[in-house]
Write a protein that binds this DNA or RNA. Structure first.
Lengths: 213, 213
DNA sequence: CGTTTGAGTGTACGAACGTGCACTGAAAGG
DNA sequence: CCTTTCAGTGCACGTTCGTACACTCAAACG
């Protein structure tokens, strides 16, 4: 039953995985216009080239499909986080580098970012919850990273969490704005500059924290 | 034709306005579950108690209804802004007061805030655009208010705009979080405290701006 | 090599959708 | 008082939807 010596993927499961991928891709593409909530099983099936009922071989419902897309999207984001963590130099250029990495990933994984931005606010409750949970994990990771920076010794864990939330919120907003500025490089450039300035403002506030409570 | 001496509203237009209001209210209520995009004309009509085709006597489409709801929602927000501007004392308590006013208005106009939060990200393009435009106006108003505060003399208009955007972004995020924390007063209390801390951090950063560029 | 498995097919159904069209009847207007 | 206006009615249509059910047929299994 189980192919222990995986010399080659059996064609059966290969084909199933290929169809599953096609469904995920089609859903991602189709939900770019409007929302997951208005995405019909039949639309997806037609786009993929299968009969509607065959959809159930892969997902129980559109909502289950949505949860799979959330997981997939956040894999991209974790890659981004890893890129960000490569070398943690002084504060001097950490801002520029962070924003650059964010922008690069937004372009590279446009569909996933669009999906998250939309469904975060308007998706089915389960999807919204899943996204909220992932973002919360992000905030926690950022907090532990921030704790490693010099000058944060006297900070409480609570303050670190609050600061992380502020930064993540600002970055999410920046990502959404960049998505909305597609095809207008000048507008995007301005947004990038704005994000850098904001991040610097926040960091300056953070570094002066506790001294002026 | 025009009732110049408006002794009493004629019953005809009164009734029409009443139905229009009922449609707006029904749409607001129904779109709380899911999105405007999945809201059907027939659902709204049934909720209101009219026949589907009668809907067209008031709106051309669900999207037009959405635009009307955007206008209506931002009337609430402008009321909030006016409340905020009443007396502009020292920075000392401006933060606490601003957050309190925001929270009060979120509770008072819950449906409108929910509508804006959802449609901002997932509504029809025209609706998204209208919301984005209104938020931009907010940022501009906030920028002119900030310019009146002491200590901002050396600021460029650009920096003011960037700061306003950051603050508005944080407040929008706070409002969304509070909406999501309905019925959990402890969680809300924590969110309020977080918002206050964040606003203070940002203001400290702003006040030290230019000195540490 | 015969048997089992399961991804994908084909048909068919009832429900909900947007909208066109002809209508009614009471309030507003002259 | 007679006429016009128009919010709301009632019906009918073609589409799209989710899903049930019985099926095929090739790969995988033993």
């Amino acid at each position: 039953m189980l192919q222990v010596y995986a010399e080659r993927m059996s064609t059966r499961v290969e084909q199933k995985e290929r169809t599953r991928r096609a469904i995920l891709d089609a859903a991602l593409e189709l939900s770019d216009e409007s929302t997951l909530a208005v995405l019909s099983l039949r639309q997806v099936a037609k786009e993929v080239g299968i009969v509607p009922t065959a959809f159930y071989r892969h997902f129980d419902s559109i909502e289950a499909l949505g949860l799979a897309l959330v997981d997939e999207s956040f894999v991209s984001l974790r890659t981004m986080m890893r890129d960000l963590r490569r070398g943690d130099p002084a504060l001097s250029d950490v801002v520029d580098r962070s924003v650059s990495v964010l922008v690069a990933h937004v372009h590279q994984d446009r569909a996933h970012f669009l999906f998250i931005a939309r469904e975060r606010a308007a998706g089915p409750p389960a999807v919204r919850e899943a996204i909220g949970h992932q973002i919360e994990l992000f905030e926690r990771e950022l907090a532990t990273d921030l704790a490693k920076l010099p000058g944060t010794d006297a900070w409480s864990g609570e303050d670190l969490r609050v600061l992380s939330n502020l930064i993540v919120t600002a970055m999410v907003s920046t990502a959404e704005a960049i998505l909305g500025a597609a095809g207008r490089p000048d507008a995007e450039k301005e947004l990038v500059e704005q994000a850098r300035t904001q991040l610097r403002m926040v960091l300056i506030g953070a570094l002066n924290w506790r001294s002026k409570p």
